[in-house]
Computed example of a mutant assay.
Amino acid sequence: MKDVRTLQQRLQGCRRSAVHLEMRDGYMRSDSRFIAWQNGERNAPEDNDPALRPWLRLVAELVGRGVEVRRARIVSEPVSDYVEFEHHVTAANVTAGESVRWLPRPQASGIALPGNDFWLLDGGVVVFHHFDGYGELAPDDESFTDDPATVKLCESAFEAVWERAIPHEEYRPYPE
């Protein structure tokens, strides 16, 4: 029988850790929040309010149960407008309990990285995300594996990125 649990369902089942590695400079440019941000709307309630942003509620629930939630982003510099948007809205993720770090792409040289963004859940299951060339979700947008070699690669990649990356509070994606 095929496992049809969604990423959210898998995250809700986490007991110890959920780590996420992002390696693209743009995602879902069709996202209404990104479009509003491009049009100058900053600090919209849907960016910061857990009642309007389900991800924030999920992170707070996981962290409240003792699950460590970490996200690392490998980014090109100067950053894309999408990464600038991500940086702007990430403070709410941190407030919800997610630890976030940023790694400028040249500092990722020498790290063996998988070909796709992923979540590693409880150190045993990898959820890969698949995007098209425009950053939109591909028709086969997620795949799951518990293959030990793949889990080991993803764990090693994430930890190597995490060790080199800059905490969100210290990272400045654009000149001040």
Rank of each mutant, 00 (worst) to 15 (best):
V83F: 03
T150P: 04
H130I: 09
G110L: 05
N116G: 10
G123A: 04
W55D: 12
T145S: 03
F34V: 04
L120E: 06
G97H: 08
V161S: 02
H87A: 00
P139L: 01
A60W: 04
A157H: 03
G97M: 03
S109H: 14
T90V: 07
K152G: 11
P175V: 15
E159G: 05
D47E: 14
P54S: 11
T90P: 06
L121T: 05
R15H: 12
F144R: 15
T145R: 00
M28W: 11
R10W: 09
V4M: 13
S30F: 10
R10M: 12
R24Q: 13
L52T: 08
V4D: 14
Q38A: 10
H168K: 09
Y27M: 11
V69K: 08
A160G: 05
V75F: 01
E22F: 03
Y82T: 00
E142T: 15
A44P: 08
D141R: 14
V4S: 13
V100S: 09
C14S: 07
V126K: 02
L21W: 01
S156H: 14
G64M: 00
F128G: 06
G123F: 00
D146S: 14
K152Y: 11
E155D: 15
F85R: 00
C14A: 12
G124W: 08
L56T: 02
F85W: 00
W119T: 04
C154H: 10
K152Q: 15
A51V: 11
D25W: 02
T90W: 02
E136I: 06
F34G: 00
L62K: 04
A36S: 14
S76M: 05
H88P: 00
E46A: 13
E22R: 08
S80R: 05
K2P: 14
V161Y: 00
G97T: 06
D49Q: 03
D47K: 07
E142S: 13
W37E: 03
L62R: 01
Q107G: 01
A96S: 08
P78R: 03
F158S: 04
L7R: 02
F128W: 07
H129T: 13
P104L: 01
G123K: 02
P139K: 05
P54V: 10
K2E: 14
E68I: 08
A44G: 12
M1V: 13
L120T: 09
G97L: 06
D117H: 01
H87S: 02
R172G: 14
L56K: 03
A72M: 03
S99W: 08
L7G: 02
D31H: 05
H168A: 06
L121R: 07
D146V: 12
G123P: 04
D122K: 02
H168F: 09
R65E: 12
Q8A: 13
A36Q: 13
P173M: 07
P148V: 10
P104R: 00
V127E: 10
P175I: 15
L113C: 10
A108C: 05
H130P: 07
S30V: 09
F85L: 00
Q12M: 12
L7Q: 01
Y82L: 04
C154G: 10
Q12A: 13
E84M: 13
F128N: 06
R29L: 15
W55K: 15
G115P: 11
V94Y: 06
H129D: 15
E155N: 14
A91T: 04
